[in-house]
């Protein structure tokens, strides 16, 4: 496997881009940052499948494609299936000797939003993970169905206002907690599972390289701050990702073989979660006096999760 040098940012920047501009993602969207960081982290041939979602509808607007690699779109839920089938076909053709260039390194990658990963494509992803195909699934987690108007998904955290879990006099937004997808995928026995964030580009690129190198199904959950539905200024995307990792709302960690947990980023100063919530319009209502208990609950959940991750890292189970 040929790897792009990512020792420092200057070395990294010599990579030749394979994701072109003039896609129709919103200005300041973190999806394309994540995709670029992935595609620049390797110079292997890539076969990419995308679920329906912001990334798919914006990068393949007929008659345009923004991908300089092989790219497949089939349905909302089945990027994992498409990638795993392409991988099976590649293996079969290699065995039969019908590939034009059998020695060229090829990696299989699937992209999905959180709607298609946590909800709609969950069964298909679980199946592909269980079958043990050699591919990497990357979830671009922006915590709602941003492509269709910001409906709640099972990734939306408690207290967030969405178009189908509205905040008002009767409700404080979504009342359920977020699904822990990373733990579910680790429980599949996947050899490499991680949660990464685009503001930590080096950790992210290294995680991608590790996932591509690892044989077997790998899952990566990435934080993708959504300027439209989280309601913040497009220029603050990286600032929001910084807040997400530093408040430990999105801890950055990896789980190898379902057991070995490593925390990849420890913030020097952990910021109280209020700062992260205050930076976004979707949490505006939580700062009313009657909703204070929700912020306390979010902070309590974060502290408990961080404690759990640290203890698991120590115990190696």
């Amino acid at each position: 496997m040929a790897i792009t040098n990512i020792k420092n940012l200057k070395e990294f920047s010599t990579a030749n881009e394979r994701f072109e501009g003039a896609h129709l993602l919103c200005p300041g969207c973190a999806h394309s940052m994540i995709v670029r960081e992935l595609m620049n982290a390797t110079d292997d041939n890539l076969v990419i499948a995308s679920n329906t979602g912001c990334l798919e509808v914006s990068t393949a607007v007929y008659p345009y494609t923004s991908w300089d690699t092989s790219w497949i779109h089939i349905g909302f839920e089945n990027a994992a299936t498409a990638a795993s089938c392409a991988e099976s076909m590649y293996k079969a053709r290699k065995r039969k000797g019908t590939l034009p260039d059998p020695d060229a390194p090829v990696k299989f990658v699937a992209f999905g939003g959180d709607g298609s990963t946590y909800d709609i494509g969950f069964q298909w992803l679980s199946g592909a993970m269980e079958r043990g195909h050699d591919f990497t699934y990357i979830c671009l987690d922006n915590e709602n169905y941003a492509n269709t108007g910001g409906q709640r998904s099972s990734s939306t955290p408690i207290g967030a206002h969405t178009s189908t879990a509205q905040a008002g006099s009767e409700s404080y937004g979504k009342t359920q907690r977020k699904k822990d997808m990373v733990a579910i995928m680790a429980a599949h026995g996947a050899p490499y599972v991680a949660q990464l964030s685009p503001n930590k580009w080096k950790i992210m690129a290294k995680g991608f390289q590790k996932a591509l190198e690892t044989e077997g199904p790998c899952f990566i959950n990435t934080v993708s701050p959504c300027t439209t539905e989280w309601k913040f200024d497009p220029k603050d995307t990286i600032h929001l990702a910084d807040l997400a990792t530093d408040t430990l709302m999105f801890p950055v960690y990896e789980i190898i073989n379902g057991t070995e947990l490593n925390i990849l980023y420890r913030p020097k100063n952990v910021i109280p979660v209020e700062e992260y919530l205050a930076a976004q319009g979707r949490y505006k209502h939580l700062f009313k006096p009657e909703n204070k208990h929700v912020i306390e609950r979010i902070q309590k959940d974060i502290d408990a999760k961080w404690e759990y991750l640290q203890r698991r890292e120590e115990a190696r189970v």
Partner: peptide, 20 residues
């Protein structure tokens, strides 16, 4: 100072960077 921060985080592949 050619730190390339803008290159890595540009969402639109719009920062042109060659040979560091």
């Amino acid at each position: 100072i050619d730190c390339q921060n803008c290159w890595v985080w540009c969402p639109d592949t719009s920062i042109i960077s060659r040979d560091k």
